[in-house]
Design a protein around this nucleic acid. Sequence first.
DNA 1: CGTCATTATGAGTACGTTAACAACTTGAGG
DNA 2: CCTCAAGTTGTTAACGTACTCATAATGACG
Lengths: 343, 343
Amino acid sequence: MARRPSNDTGTRPVSMADVARAAGVSQQTVSRVANGLPNVNEQTRQRVQAAMQELGFRPSYAGRSLRDGRYHSVGLCVNDVTKFGNLSMIDGIASAAREHNCAITLVEMSKTEEFSLAEATRRMAALPVDGIIIGMSRMAPDFETFDPLPGIGTVIVTMYAHPRVTTVDSDHYGCSLLLMDHLFELGHEQIRYIGGPSFSVDEQFRRAGWQDALERKHVEPVEPLEGDWSANSGYEAGRYLAEHDHTMTAIYAANDQMANGAIAALRDSGLRVPEDVSVVGVDDSLDDFVAHNELTTVRFDLHQRGREVFEHAVPEAGTAGKNVAIRIPGQLIIRHSTAIPRA
Amino acid sequence: MARRPSNDTGTRPVSMADVARAAGVSQQTVSRVANGLPNVNEQTRQRVQAAMQELGFRPSYAGRSLRDGRYHSVGLCVNDVTKFGNLSMIDGIASAAREHNCAITLVEMSKTEEFSLAEATRRMAALPVDGIIIGMSRMAPDFETFDPLPGIGTVIVTMYAHPRVTTVDSDHYGCSLLLMDHLFELGHEQIRYIGGPSFSVDEQFRRAGWQDALERKHVEPVEPLEGDWSANSGYEAGRYLAEHDHTMTAIYAANDQMANGAIAALRDSGLRVPEDVSVVGVDDSLDDFVAHNELTTVRFDLHQRGREVFEHAVPEAGTAGKNVAIRIPGQLIIRHSTAIPRA
DNA sequence: CGTCATTATGAGTACGTTAACAACTTGAGG
DNA sequence: CCTCAAGTTGTTAACGTACTCATAATGACG
């Protein structure tokens, strides 16, 4: 049972040799026509192109890649495509890849469970990729011991630095400092925190920024609350704070969705935003979903991050400086959810 | 200037032959070890595995694909990764692909301009894909005349049927009927429509469903409004309707985001939802963004759509029935934005 | 001790492509 | 007529893999 019939009756894909036979030229001439090389007689070119059309020739990616050792694709490994962080990563990388005429080979690991970097690397390395990008939105069990595969660029998208791998991320620590400084300047000091799930790397760094900012100002951080990034969890946390904390003057929610929920809760509790309580978020993700978005937040340049990630994963194109840790700062967007605290 | 040095000093990737030389066996034995075949002496296996580890062997995707004619990847071509429709498509296809141990090769075309199916097909066909999926969220200029490439499964994700290509989509027409029937049953007849941009295929079918439902009930459809899918555009439309139409009792917004904006506008205009005006949307996309989501809407099973799309694009796995038009019905989700109209 | 099955391994080949080189034709200039 | 250049086409080799077949070693059984 031959896998691929060599005769013409089978379903084997049409190769250059088939086209060559049909057009009465050598296979190499077909290659020349396919690649638009100049040294082909016009008449011959047309005959070959006609044969290609006729037979439905499709150049073999495998043959070409085997020949010239490039795949023109970058591998991207994430746990859940739909999470905001991953989506924005895909978007940023997609535009960088497009600029380099490159595709993205996407692999979604388990949506819920963590995965090891070794496993992710092993899977990605067996795919047609010139570089490997791993989104580590929660700490991998083998992060410390992980060794990248030699001979292929590897980038981990995460805030944690690694001794042997380049890591790139938006600055999830710095964004907290931006927001806290903004609140400090307005005069706030009692700033409560509503975070995401504690396994999230983004959460860990955003929260650390909040805590460090307070401690640097010699304010004791009060018990951070834990949500799940959703507006409903922000609502519950906001409700709790409205009822139990009458000294706070501001809330820092670790993403806009929870901030939006928290604002709703505060208002349902009879508190005004921003007159009674200021609220800030992160991501600048509400615009499409709520009218008159008034949330003060931090916006990240995801396309720049995508470009950095891409160019470090596929070093031919950009700086090949090995093993750095790149943190791309966000931009403070001041809207109308923050104000001077009540006296 | 040899592209790839054949000696050991160069940067050529490590092949099975290299491993074989290091382990003192034949290349074929390395292949057997790499693929976990049983007929290898345990001692030999360990020696080979040690050599693999030592040299950092990475199996060549190109060699393997050339050899067995499969890529284990499906091509996906969309215009803008971040659009809700496309994102949900990626998500659904990703989980179907994972079930078949398959990757996704993602190409993002121009975010803003339309692209022709011929161009998309040409680009995708040159990539490592066993099937081609094209998201046609706006009508392609060559839809009527398009001929799929023979020898590779092609699926277009769109509501339009095509005489020579399988098309799959969520039922963007049927969702309107579900919502309109729900409103009819409550007693509504004066139902205004806030649509997306008119070039959108989803918009065209959702709007057609609204119009047909009214006409079937012998109600004259009143001037549909056009938004841009964003909450702000829904707000503006809602504001306009609140001020100019005092006979309407319900609004059908073509997505949840505009519905959310419309509700805000109605309330800002002093109207109650649902007591004075009922509002419905489509997509069931608000849960993460707003607390206490009360919007009646239609939810699509995106994973089922992804599975259908995938299995028609890569027919080896599922039903290979050629050239069908599959419409996957949505599910009506009744919450609390709809009620019996005021008397 | 010969026969035969079982196990382990190697040799050869084909997959489709492109670079490098060789070969052939044509025409101009001496 | 010879030489040389330019244009066009063909031949060969190599990329890395896995299938098929051949070969060699081992042990069981009559």
